[in-house]
């Protein structure tokens, strides 16, 4: 981590209420349940985890689109509490969604789409707006801008749509970009190009990025750090290289399968689906949420008490009882079914 944190999440818990017939309380979906992490200025962090583990909910919570039940979001040392804070924050954060077509209002031209954030954030001079819009289009290589300005979203290819979304997200000069699976719905052929664009924008503007993905192979190019999420909780946080080399948490280890690959960059890949069923978020397992699936589960411990975060290395944290006490800084356990107490 470099410098003071730009963004800090402290004990975030976002639960969705489940209701029957619109009013009878049925329970809570604990989509995000006690998440804390920090993000330094200019740092890109990836959030990985299987489908439905709460990644998008975490992104929306960080953006203030859903209100957490508990916990706080801090930005540039300011706690985001009242409406004023959020308004201040919105200009400093950009949001890139998964489905580029859905993220663009179909009835607005490219020009309107890009002008909207400027209008609502008080850029009232049309000429200034136009200049900013053209600049933004050029920055995402939608050139020549005049050709794109009058088009509607359906007249753009998927890659162009997503670049437009990126242009919109970076238009107000944000410090932070939250990208929720920005390339998962794109053709493989344009993924690299959009990721490249995000990367270069991140570097040229010293943007911090929260990059949510399924695909660990892209993480390596893009991020310094990885947060592994499981059933609403962060189970492991580490530098990319550390995580790929030495995954500590049994879930991460299950996620990473050793796949022989001529390209050493791809030595480890994210398995699409780790074995076993994802747990219910309405009634999550007691103790460690991974214990029903965990090959290394410690009976009597893992199914009773929730593991706290253990510092397992420099900037490497894992929430697993395997690393309790003395074992905190031990060497990497074997890839599958590592050390038992």
């Amino acid at each position: 981590m470099r410098g003071d944190p730009l963004l800090a999440a402290r004990g975030l818990a976002t639960w969705y209420e489940l209701r029957r017939w619109g009013f009878l309380h049925q329970g809570w979906v604990r989509a995000v349940d006690g998440v804390s992490f920090q993000l330094a200025e200019g740092e890109a962090v990836a959030v990985v985890g299987e489908s439905g583990c709460g990644k998008s909910t975490l992104a929306k919570t960080l953006l203030g689109l859903v209100r957490p039940l508990r916990g706080e979001v801090w930005f540039e040392g300011r706690r985001l509490g009242g409406a004023d804070d959020w308004r201040w924050y919105r200009r400093r954060v950009g949001y890139v969604q998964q489905d580029p077509y859905g993220a663009l209002p179909p009835f607005m031209s490219v020009r309107r789409i890009l002008e909207e954030p400027l209008v609502v954030n008080g850029v009232s001079s049309p000429s200034k707006r136009r200049a900013r819009v053209v600049e933004a289009l050029e920055a995402v290589q939608l050139v020549p801008p005049e050709e794109f300005l009058p088009r509607f979203p359906h007249m753009l290819s998927g890659g162009q749509q997503q670049r437009l979304v990126v242009a919109r997200a970076t238009l107000l000069g944000p410090r932070l970009l939250v990208a929720d699976e920005p390339v998962s719905m794109l053709d493989a052929s344009v993924r690299a190009e959009v990721l490249q664009l995000l990367r270069s924008l991140q570097q040229s503007h010293r943007l911090s990025v929260v990059y949510i993905t399924h695909d660990l192979s892209t993480v390596r190019h893009f991020c310094e750090r990885v947060l592994v999420m499981y059933a609403g909780k962060l189970v492991e946080q580490a530098q990319v290289t550390d995580l790929l080399r030495e995954p500590k948490h049994p879930y991460t280890q299950a996620l990473l399968a050793a796949i022989p690959d001529p390209d050493p960059e791809n030595a480890r890949r994210l398995r699409p689906v780790p074995p076993g069923e994802p747990p219910s978020l309405v009634r999550p397992p007691e103790g460690c949420r991974f214990h029903p699936r965990c090959p290394a589960a410690i009976p009597g411990v893992c199914d009773r008490r929730e593991p706290p975060d253990f510092e397992v290395g420099a900037g490497h944290v894992a929430a697993c009882w395997l690393y309790e006490g003395a074992r905190t800084v031990t060497a990497a356990p074997a890839v599958e079914g590592g050390g038992s107490p």
Partner: peptide, 28 residues
Amino acid sequence: EAPYVEAARAYGVGNLRMVAVYLVPRAI
């Protein structure tokens, strides 16, 4: 529930503008 409504909230569109500029045109 459309993603573009969510995106608009993220860049700070308020309630009135949301109704008039983002919802209503969709029904045209």
